[in-house]
């Protein structure tokens, strides 16, 4: 631990080139940016959920609000006020 405090060993961070080149964007960053916004979630079982993203965790389990479910038999007419979606079947998230 002491070694880290030695001035010679401290890593000088090069100045970040922020605006010039887009840095790598982590997938979870994309989801994090969508918190509070409307998203569409596609599952592996041909189901789709559209709603407002409230939160998520490392497993991509998601809390969604005012959700409309869509499957291959059509759009459900009732809106789910608040739901937790298991991340296990999530295939794709589309911010809108």
């Amino acid at each position: 631990m002491l070694v880290l405090l030695h001035p010679y060993l401290q890593v000088q961070n090069p100045p970040m080139s922020e605006a010039s080149e887009p840095q790598t964007i982590l997938p979870l960053e994309v989801i994090d940016k969508s918190v509070g916004k409307k998203i569409r979630v596609l599952l592996t079982n041909d189901k789709e959920f559209t709603g407002t993203l409230i939160g998520f965790d490392d497993f991509v389990n998601m809390v969604l609000e005012d959700v409309v479910e869509e499957s291959n038999d059509g759009v459900s007419d009732k809106v789910i006020k608040k739901m937790l979606l298991n991340g296990g079947q999530v295939a794709m998230i589309v911010p809108s």
């Binding site: 918190v35 509070g36 409230i54 939160g55 965790d57 998601m62 809390v63 608040k82 937790l84």
Partner: peptide, 10 residues
């Protein structure tokens, strides 16, 4: 404030 992750939701 608005963010509610799954464990908190539950």
């Amino acid at each position: 404030i608005t963010k509610t992750d799954p464990s908190k939701f539950l």
